[in-house]
Simulated assay, not measured.
Amino acid sequence: MLRKKTNGEGCKVIKNIIFDMGNVLAKFDTARFCASRVRSRRDRKIMQREVFASIEWSRLDRGVITHEEAIASIQGRLPEKLWHYADWLVRHWYDHFEPDQTIERFIGALKKKGYRIYLLSNAGFDFYKFKPSLGALRWFDGEIVSADVHLLKPDRQIFDALLNKYALKAEECFFVDDMSLNVEAALNIGFSGMIYRGCVRDLAAGLEKAGVSL
């Protein structure tokens, strides 16, 4: 668990808990997603690399490229037999987004304790298509989605966008994300936080160590 303390004042007073989305609020397994359509193991690896680890994917998350532009660019690197897979994966990736009901209940309990809950996610405009399926979001007080602000974690500016939009203080925020670079970025601007590895029990322990009442 990663957190910071104020100088000589012990643990910070946490009032706001900020969650990432993919592999926190919902499971997103790109290998499994590719395997649902692509039979060849070799081709699955190609699709994972050329779609989900691509510049085009980052640009979709940043909100500066359309599906059509992303697909055309990705297809330009692929043999023609894989073009239809690229098209389908880009347009339907959220079909394999699996909301986590355990963390949904946990967030509900945090909300009932009086904590304010926010979303900070790298996600394209497709977010608004599957947003209604994420039951946990009913507990949230606000959100920053990368495509809307044309910024990506771990850029400091996206954290500043969250703080400014909701008038939050970094030292009163605890950030939960599955990526170490994103958590480190949050710590560097004064947040507390931890890397989420899929275990709500570990998350509860980390929050309690930071002074969150559960």
Rank of each mutant, 00 (worst) to 15 (best):
R41M: 14
D43I: 01
R44N: 08
K45A: 12
I46P: 09
I46N: 02
Q48R: 06
E50R: 15
F52D: 12
A53W: 11
S54F: 07
S54G: 15
E56F: 00
W57T: 03
S58W: 14
R59T: 01
L60I: 11
D61P: 06
R62Q: 15
E69M: 03
E69W: 02
A72T: 09
S73P: 00
I74P: 05
Q75D: 13
L78N: 10
L78D: 11
W83L: 14
Y85P: 14
A86E: 09
H96W: 13
F97Q: 04
E98H: 15
E98G: 04
D100W: 05
Q101A: 08
T102V: 14
I107M: 07
A109P: 01
K112Y: 13
K112E: 12
K113S: 05
K113P: 02
Y115K: 13
I117H: 07
Y118D: 10
L119D: 02
G124H: 05
G124D: 14
F127I: 01
Y128D: 14
K129L: 10
K131V: 02
P132R: 10
S133G: 04
L134A: 03
R138L: 01
F140V: 08
V145G: 06
S146A: 12
S146F: 01
S146R: 00
A147W: 01
D148W: 06
L152K: 10
K153P: 09
F159N: 04
